[in-house]
Nucleic acid binder design. Structure first.
Lengths: 156, 156
DNA sequence: GTCATTGCAAAGCATTTGCAAGTCG
DNA sequence: CGACTTGCAAATGCTTTGCAATGAC
């Protein structure tokens, strides 16, 4: 399912090269971060991490590289007008996510019955369904425990 | 399922009054528009329509009223960081939507198998699922025909 | 008469863009 | 070397906020 990050990195580099893009150290670092991150980071989270190695790296450079990958269909953008957008560079095809409303953690949620939902919706609505976005919001186990510890009367 | 708009409007007015809010002509018009709209309008689309009757109405007033309804859980906000947010004042509980990527039309898409998806995802991931967001993107029948007419070689 | 609401303008925030300086190939 | 990239700063677009004037109850 997931490609090995190192192999995926090579593929992305080759793909960008084939499109006439130059592989700068900054870009390589961004790609590396994206293919390794399971946490669906925001552009700013990526930027903060990248500053360690590239103290002058601009947030604009992160956005520009993400734009490149979006055009190539190699990164999945999860738009949130309140949390800011989050990015999945490991699995660029649409898949369900679960988002913790307390800590912002995002994990994949593969439900077999959701897989052919797009097909059914197409039949029901007459639309040509090209892509989808399936998000579930709630409390992750860690945050639920934290809440229970802080306020035992509200525990499940 | 859907309440009759007139009845729903009365409920909303009563609810806001009970919360100490005043029912100004502007607010009433915004509520009326929301409970009647099936098109999931944006704040700006609402504002444009409201300007006919209230030439001085400010966009901020639209947003402030929407905020009020969000706090009361009486409007469903569909966030799109690119299209701008869209609002459903008829059915404030989460439900699947289909969005036309060409014209921006949004329609409801009730799939019976999607209904208990939240429950299954909760079991699979260990999260407490509180709400969800299920969006399908594609071409509505009208836009598909338009496209086919413009470029017959690409027709389905 | 009080206190919430309006409407304007200004502020916020995430993201995008313009451009001169720098650098990959 | 030349074209692409970088990084800064300014611009953008949607939404929110501050505040004096207005108006609901």
């Amino acid at each position: 399912m997931d490609a090995v990050p190192a192999a995926r990195l090579d593929n992305l580099v080759a793909l960008l090269r084939s499109r006439g893009c130059r592989i700068t150290p900054q870009r390589l670092a961004i790609l590396r971060l994206l293919v390794h991150s399971r946490s669906h980071p925001s552009a700013e989270q990526m930027h903060v991490r990248l500053l360690r190695r590239f103290p002058t790296m601009s947030l604009a450079t992160v956005y520009k590289t993400i734009t490149l990958l979006k055009q190539a269909g190699e990164v999945l953008e999860l738009q949130f007008s309140d949390l800011g957008n989050r990015y999945d560079g490991r699995r660029p095809t649409p898949h369900p996510h679960v988002i913790c409303t307390a800590c912002g953690a995002i994990v994949d949620a593969d439900d077999p019955l959701l897989c052919d939902a797009a097909e059914r919706v197409a039949r029901e609505t007459g639309y040509d369904i090209l892509t989808h976005r399936l998000d579930f919001f709630g409390l992750c186990p860690a945050c639920r425990e934290k809440r229970a510890a802080a306020d035992p009367t509200q525990a499940a």
